[in-house]
Design a binder for these strands. Structure first.
Lengths: 278, 278
DNA sequence: CGTGCCAGGTGCCCT
DNA sequence: AGGGCACTTGGCACG
């Protein structure tokens, strides 16, 4: 574990240590007064100011101001770093291809240079993702509906891969779209595309149900689901259970309403959705 | 312009300078061996390793490994930073509300601490955005089609705001959706939602045209447009002109096909799209 | 503050 | 390499 730090170095000193640090595979931070020019998918310029620049050994480049989580300028992994001194300025250039992009940082003055030996675990354990929600449902399909039988995940269709494909207690095909958070109109459209793809695949005479599973849904998305005869089931991705007792969710009659009607009545594509909303 | 740097400080020293730097509104970097725990919209844990932690005066928190542009853990702006020493470890905590989220960083050892006076311009001039594309079209509506008349931008509908609303040479309502880059299925669905909203608004007897303007479109999205009777116009956001002469774009007959048919024949909602594809 | 949507989105996986 | 999509998406503008 080593760190190299220079305080108010000359451009020549910075250049020297920069190249050595790149060679070593260190993560480099440069704090200094600079301008930034970007050209690639878009084009941008940034006037002079004191900023923190980070060069990662994988080619990532970050230019940070004192605000925001998102860097003001950047380059994704895979770009090549090159430094030079011209016209009394230190230029750090990051270039990449596909697409062709160039990021130029011109330092008028470097206040601090550091080369850091960043190492150790990079993968975190994360809970509460859409994948977790899927596993909850595959473990207990009745979370979606009593009698639901998952048949395939990532099932391909002309509209793309569906999260869960299966059938209800009556054998009616069901496509289930999962979202880890409250959904808007785009999720409803996405589900609708899959349902339409199945209609084309099976023929319009075959009923197909589309179910959106998410912790909650916006009004607009709920309307959209209703218009398209799609259904909504409220589940929390972390627990796999209904998020919490809200008025709206209590309005939905529990599945044990009558013993001969739990999950029956395969809905037609133009039937209404029940419950929902967040 | 000042910088404060500590090399292999004790936790007490770090704590002292950390609080002073937060008070001053500096941007802080801490390089050290740490673990990270996050709990909020999701939950995650990250085992020990040497990482670069950045605390911004606006509350943003970034934990960077040696890879990727995206931090391995983070907190968006608006969170509150608090540091303490417990059980021989330095804990830096960032908390925020709506939603409730906590990020805990436990340092076993700090290799370097810096407090930086990051100042200067934060706003960059950027070219090639969707807004630029819109301005190109508003300057010269014939870029979309000869005879196109924009009437309103961000026109509200039950499906949300449309980029450009207007009418063609025959006075047929047109909704134009703009994208700065190659589009996939979601953009086609988005346009379709707007067209459906206008149908509900005007009644199904009134023809409505939907036009997607982007540099190019994927095959799947082109199919989706065709199915829904939507049209596509290829324009580059930076120049406002067709991206470049591709085979597909050359297949599209130029508007001067016949002198009495430039932009005529208001298409029905179920008509086919012409050209398109990328 | 929630809703909706753009973003130089990034990152992942699959063909 | 390109396509389709999730993401602790982030950030913005508008209700």
């Amino acid at each position: 574990m080593h760190t190299t730090t220079l305080h108010r170095p000359t451009h020549r000193e910075t250049l020297w240590e920069l190249e050595a640090a790149i060679e070593r595979g260190d993560l480099i931070t440069v704090f200094g007064r600079c301008t930034v020019d970007y050209d690639g998918r878009a084009t941008s310029t940034l006037g002079p100011g004191n900023r923190l620049v980070i060069l990662k050994p994988d080619g990532s480049t970050l230019v940070h101001t004192d605000e925001k989580r998102t860097p003001v300028n950047w380059q994704p992994p895979g770009c090549e770093h090159h430094a030079s001194v011209r016209d009394g300025r230190l230029r750090v250039r990051g270039t990449r291809t596909t697409p062709d992009e160039t990021l130029d940082i011109h330092f008028e003055q470097v206040h601090q240079f550091s080369a850091l030996d960043v190492t150790g675990g990079r993968d975190l354990d994360l809970y509460g993702s859409e994948e977790d929600l899927r596993e909850h449902i595959l473990d207990d399909p009745s979370l979606v509906e009593s009698g639901f039988t998952p048949l395939e995940t990532e099932r391909e269709s002309t509209a793309g891969p569906m999260d869960i494909y299966g059938e209800d207690a009556e054998g009616v095909p069901m496509v289930v779209e999962l979202k880890r958070r409250r959904v808007g109109p785009s999720a409803a459209s996405q589900l609708q595309r899959y349902v339409e793809a199945l209609h084309r695949e099976f023929g319009d005479s075959v009923a197909v149900r589309g179910v959106l599973v998410a912790p909650s849904v916006t009004d607009r998305a709920a309307d959209l689901l209703k218009e398209n005869g799609l259904e909504f089931v409220a589940l929390d991705p972390a627990t796999g259970e209904p998020p919490e007792a809200t008025e709206a969710s209590e309005e939905v009659e529990p599945p044990e309403a009558s013993e001969d009607a739990d999950g029956d009545e395969p809905k037609e594509a133009d039937s209404e959705t029940d419950g929902s909303d967040g």
